[in-house]
Amino acid sequence: MTIKEIVDKYGSKRENLLQILHGIQNQNPRNYINKESISALSKEMNIPVSQIKGTASFYSMFSFIPRGKYVIRVCESPPCHLLGAESIFKAIEYKLGIMIGETTKDGLFTLEGTSCLGICGVAPAMMINEDVHGNLNEEKIFQILDQIQEQEKERIQLCREEALTRF
């Protein structure tokens, strides 16, 4: 969808700004809001660029730098901290070789710390894009990440084969 279509979908009033920003970010393959779309949005909605950026930067779900295909958000709040969120971060950092706020070289994963996800009953918890994973331990994390990496490998393999058949 172009920016105009997204704005038309939600309405061009200021109160729909957050929804539109969500829409722009979700359709970007790298999960972020780029400069061009902000300036296009500014013209479309008649709001200064500074105001759009000021509003979007307030909210932790919006990003202005390219992120991975899978955004891993690990809960940092006290309930998860008590039950070992620290070791979850370490396990992911060890497995993927990235620190908080960084993206893997293959563009697959971004690691982020987040406030409470509202799934404290199964603490420590994390979200990968929109999937929730609870009762985590190191083994479980390795298993989840392996599974995603395996899926991606298969997908790339399939894409390659498909591309080859076209020639």
Binding site: P79, S115, C116, G118, I119, C120, G121
Partner: peptide
């Protein structure tokens, strides 16, 4: 907008 850490009743 239930953001209080440890609360998930509203959800």
């Amino acid at each position: 907008d239930e953001g209080e850490p440890g609360t998930f009743k509203d959800r």
